[in-house]
Design a protein around this nucleic acid. Structure first.
Length: 426
RNA sequence: GUGAGCGUGGCGAAGGGGUUAACGCACCGGAUUGUGGAUCCGGCAUACGUGGGUUCGAUUCCCAUCGCUCACCCCA
């Protein structure tokens, strides 16, 4: 095998896809119950959209974009996240001119050029939603609840929601300036990572694992954003937590929580399981729509990683439920019966049964083993004796009983059996 | 981008400078004229990631490279 899949991509094989579709069903169901509607935007956009939307100093834009030139010389980028494209579509399609707020959800692949490791790959899948046109804290609570419920309804346990406010256009710049005033004179005393964080996203410094950095922050009495929120932001955060409590969502305040993208304002949160990477995260973005050329419109949304949810399910021993079982396996017990096998399989399929047969000219024993391996409900044997009498030997693989039926009545009789079994609740 | 570990048939896995590279699983055929499990017999497979070096000889030692895995940064 000389050509392998590109680094950081995965083949999703049938055996693994059961959990995926189980998860997707739950996500779509929860979104739709909450009156969200699906949106599908392009997998690639103009590079400029992400630079302006996500933020030009974020890791995503600085080193993780899959960008390329098309034949017309335009710079395009495989989408590294979902929000920017949805906001662009919202503005471009002028959906702001409507009376109701716009509740949208999406599910699909995203791309980031990173070193793969557990819970991280170059093509991965996110599900998420965006809501435009309301800034009431009860909406924040609804979206937080959705991000939590999708995972809990999927069956995951041990989930917590960490919530913080990163401030607004008023209090955040003030805090940042104040923080830098205190910290920059001591820049060399911080670790290399923190010195970089100072440039990019000083809030991150509170996350540093180095003890010296933490001690310095305390000694210098550097305020955390949550300590210096303006009155409106403070009030908003309290109202959000009040409503998530009404909804029974296990929220915890995390004054150190920061998100990596530039566009967040006020509420930011992550759904986590102890000892694992974040499963989903989101926040409010009240300036993003305007920054991308639309009218001042508040927005809020979250995105979760499908791979991470599925991996947690595996870790927690959740199963997807049985695959649909094969109804009939047609056994060709004699080479002369191939014509009949072909038409019997076709007849059964047209009658709505999942039917299959041997295509490798294997022995009868092998074919029966095959039927067993695939958990067929029935096998239908076509051999010399059946051909001579225009019949089919039909065996119920569960009970082991077998009968001889006229060839032309097989589908009909099976339908009767199936109806009867379903009536008995089997 | 930084650091660490690992690449032997479809899968798991032993070995180790020298004729035919174990073993287990899976699969196929037979014992059982045409029936699922077990047992026994037989069969099966283009297998030592790739390229170079050392050597009379390399799957084994050395170098490089590619890939995989994990951690850091960051994030879904």
């Amino acid at each position: 095998m000389d050509i392998q899949r590109p680094r950081g991509t995965a083949d999703l094989l049938p055996e693994a896809l059961g959990l995926w579709s189980a998860f997707e069903r739950v996500a779509l169901r929860e979104f739709e119950r909450a009156n969200y509607r699906e949106i599908r935007t392009p997998l690639f956009e103009h590079t400029e959209l992400f630079v302006r939307g996500v933020g030009d100093t974020t890791d995503i834009v600085e080193k993780e974009m899959y960008s390329f030139q098309d034949r017309g010389g335009r710079s395009l980028t495989l989408r590294p996240e979902g929000t920017a494209g949805v906001v662009r579509a919202y503005v471009e399609n002028k959906r702001y001119g409507r009376a109701d707020i716009d509740k949208l959800y999406y599910l699909g692949p995203m791309f980031r050029y990173e070193r793969p490791q557990s819970g991280r790959s170059r093509q991965f899948h996110q599900y998420g939603c965006e809501v435009f046109g309301a800034e009431a804290p009860e909406l924040d609570a609804e979206v937080i609840a959705l991000s939590y419920r999708i995972l809990s309804e999927f069956g995951l346990t041990g989930l917590t929601v960490e919530v913080n406010s990163v401030g607004c256009d008023v209090c955040r710049p003030q805090h940042k300036a104040a923080m830098l005033r205190l910290v920059q004179p001591h820049a060399e005393e911080f670790c290399g990572d923190c010195q970089r964080r100072m440039e990019r996203n000083p809030l991150r410094m509170f996350d540093c694992k180095h003890e010296t950095c933490q001690r310095l922050l305390t000694e210098l009495q550097v305020p955390r954003i949550s300590d210096v929120l303006c009155a409106d932001c403070r009030e908003h955060l309290e109202a959000v937590l009040h409503h998530t409590a009404l909804l029974g969502i296990p929220c915890e305040r995390n004054p150190n929580l920061v998100r990596g993208l530039d566009y967040y304002t006020r509420t930011a949160w992550e759904v986590t399981v102890a000892g694992h990477s974040t499963v989903s995260g989101g926040g409010r973005y009240n300036s993003l729509v305007a920054e991308l050329g639309g009218p001042e419109t508040p927005g809020i949304g979250f995105a979760g990683g499908v791979e991470r949810a599925v991996q947690l399910a595996i870790d927690q021993s959740l199963t997807a439920g049985e695959d649909e079982r094969l109804d009939v396996y047609v056994v060709t017990a004699d080479q002369t019966a191939t014509d009949q096998a072909t038409s019997l399989v076709d007849t059964l399929r047209r009658a709505g049964f999942m039917a299959d047969r041997d295509f490798q000219r294997r022995s009868v024993k092998s074919q029966v083993k095959s039927a067993d391996r695939q958990h067929a409900r029935w096998m239908a044997v076509l051999g010399e004796t059946e051909l001579a009498s225009g019949t089919v030997t039909v065996k119920d693989m569960d009970s082991g009983e077998q009968e001889i039926w006229p060839f032309l009545e097989v589908a009909e009789r099976m339908q009767e059996r199936r109806t009867k079994q379903e009536g008995e609740g089997k």
